[in-house]
């Protein structure tokens, strides 16, 4: 065992340890500046940690059901919005310019024209719109007194008719198809042939 009184280095080490530490004011200022610079980063880390840290939420069964219903409602509204937007785009109100870039290669833009100055509503029905009387309304051009609609059709033979104020009328400018058992003839449009 080494005794301090017997070893000069021990005494020297003890003397050095007892000596007060002297720091200059510049060093102290540098240290405080470094701490101040570090503080915002630590605060931001604490905020993220607060957001990311797992925690327990308390929700009653009724509250949970309401939350779920709300989310479902948002989904339904969003779905209806998208659906209605597509229907509006397909119902013939779009211009040819707007429709053409979206056409499949096989489709052809076809314009349907019906002359009827004294009618209030004309729509187009056919095998291309499931014979839906509301899906393809025609637009009236008062300058020339005609109703028109332009829409893309796939190549082939299409049956159609105009619905003029509720009455089904074949296109006077197109060949007729037999009445098909429902009492009124339809019109025929051939798309993509050598004539169209």
């Amino acid at each position: 065992m080494i005794d301090s009184e017997e070893h000069p280095y021990v005494e020297w080490i003890a003397r050095e340890a007892r000596r007060p530490v002297l720091t200059d004011s510049a060093a102290r200022a540098r240290l405080m500046a470094a701490i101040r610079a570090e503080a915002p980063r630590a605060l931001r880390r604490r905020r993220w940690a607060g957001l990311l840290a797992p925690r327990t939420l308390m929700l009653s069964p009724l509250g949970g059901a309401l939350l779920a219903a709300g989310l479902v409602g948002i989904g339904v509204i969003a779905g209806r919005f998208v659906h209605n937007r597509d229907v509006r785009a397909a119902d013939g109100r779009s211009t040819t310019v707007a429709v053409t870039p979206q056409l499949p290669v096989s489709d052809t833009v076809v314009q349907f024209v019906f002359t009827a100055p004294r009618t209030t509503r004309v729509s187009l029905v056919g095998d291309f719109n499931d014979w839906d009387t509301n899906r393809t309304p025609l637009t009236y051009d008062g300058n020339v007194g005609v109703w028109t609609v332009t829409l893309p059709l796939s190549a082939g033979r299409h049956l159609y008719a105009f619905v003029v104020d509720g009455s089904w009328i074949p296109d006077p400018r197109a060949p007729l198809a037999p009445d098909g058992g429902f009492g009124h003839a339809n019109s025929v449009k051939i798309v993509g042939g050598s004539r169209s």
């Binding site: 925690r55 308390m58 779920a68 479902v72 409602g73 989904g75 339904v76 779905g79």
Partner: peptide, 22 residues
């Protein structure tokens, strides 16, 4: 207290249901 994970799973299910409805 329901664990946060179960709550998160419930919320995810509700969201998935909403998406399915849409």
């Amino acid at each position: 207290h329901t664990p946060w994970r179960r709550r998160a799973a419930s919320l995810a299910s509700a969201s998935a249901l909403a998406v399915l409805c849409a």
